[in-house]
């Protein structure tokens, strides 16, 4: 190709330039947003909303029980369910990675079944079917044991898949290095692979914790005593007592009280782990 002295003539585009198009597009997006806010603010009946959801005296009457009883139970159900799920999920994940065929199949079947069923059905199953099928058996811990088991069974299926993915995400060289140092496969798994896998799966595991936190509301299908009520049940009971929805709003805020800080903590941990592994 030869260089020519005359500069090439840029073809003139018809209509708007790229820059003009971009500013028009941004303007439209802001306009839609502002319009939506205005419509919402004007059309909602604020007085009735406040009357129904934000009665200060009703909210006041909920304290301290909403924290010391309801939130405490919600946390307790979630933590025990998470512990059961984590332990069971770990076992199932290792079975899924086993070289023994039947273990793999069994784990696969478990995961498919418990991931496919609504958590509600599992609660009903634990609450109704198990006592019917095995009369006289008592799940240890009463309601608390049943909730831990039901939440754990559901969570285990999800966690097993997460843990398996985490283990497989650890580079193959790590296992080779451990084996070449004389670690047995089991010891290499426990000392080297699983600690690294957990760093990788910390965010999805916490996500699972948040899901369980919300699923713990299903405990009401097991039939609970007054002392065993958690946030949702407590809020609903109070709402029907007072014929006002304020307790629902307060219960909802209590959930956020836990889930939002949890999100912060996880992001901090992620950043720290990133720093160490980077």
């Amino acid at each position: 190709m030869t260089d020519t002295a005359t500069p090439e003539v840029q073809p003139k585009k018809k209509g708007l330039t790229r820059r003009q198009k971009r500013s028009v597009s941004r303007g439209v997006q802001y306009a839609v947003f502002v319009a939506a806010v205005i419509v919402f603010a004007v059309s909602a009946d604020w007085d009735r909303l406040q009357n129904q959801f934000a009665q200060a005296d009703i909210a006041e009457r909920m304290f301290p029980d909403v924290i010391t009883l309801a939130l405490k139970n919600t946390v307790l159900y979630t933590v025990t369910g998470f512990a059961v799920g984590l332990a069971l999920g770990m076992v199932i994940a290792l079975m899924r990675l086993s070289s023994v065929g039947p273990y793999r199949w069994l784990a696969g079947i478990y995961i498919e079944i418990f991931r496919g069923l609504p958590a509600l059905l599992i609660f009903i199953f634990i609450g109704v079917a198990v006592p019917l099928a095995f009369p006289g058996t008592e799940i240890i811990g009463g309601t608390y044991g049943k909730v831990a088991l039901a939440l754990g069974l559901v969570a285990a299926a999800y966690m097993a898949e997460t843990i398996r993915a985490g283990i497989q995400a650890v580079p193959k060289g790590q296992m080779e290095a451990a084996r070449s140092l004389g670690f047995s496969p089991a010891r290499a798994m426990i000392s080297i692979i699983i600690p690294q896998a957990f760093r990788i799966i910390l965010p999805p595991l916490t996500n699972e914790l948040v899901l369980l936190f919300k699923d713990s509301s299903l405990v009401l299908f097991l039939g609970v005593t007054l002392e065993e009520r958690e946030l949702s049940k407590y809020g609903r009971d109070l709402a029907s007592q007072t014929a006002n929805s304020t307790p629902i709003l307060v219960a909802g805020l209590c959930y956020l009280l836990v889930t939002i800080p949890l999100g912060f903590v996880v992001r901090r941990m992620e950043a720290k782990a990133q720093e160490a592994v980077k």
Partner: peptide, 20 residues
Amino acid sequence: IDAVRRRIGMVFQQFNLFPH
């Protein structure tokens, strides 16, 4: 095999240090 491997040191191309 684990006992024998203790007597054999191995160094890899990709180092394979334990990052955690």
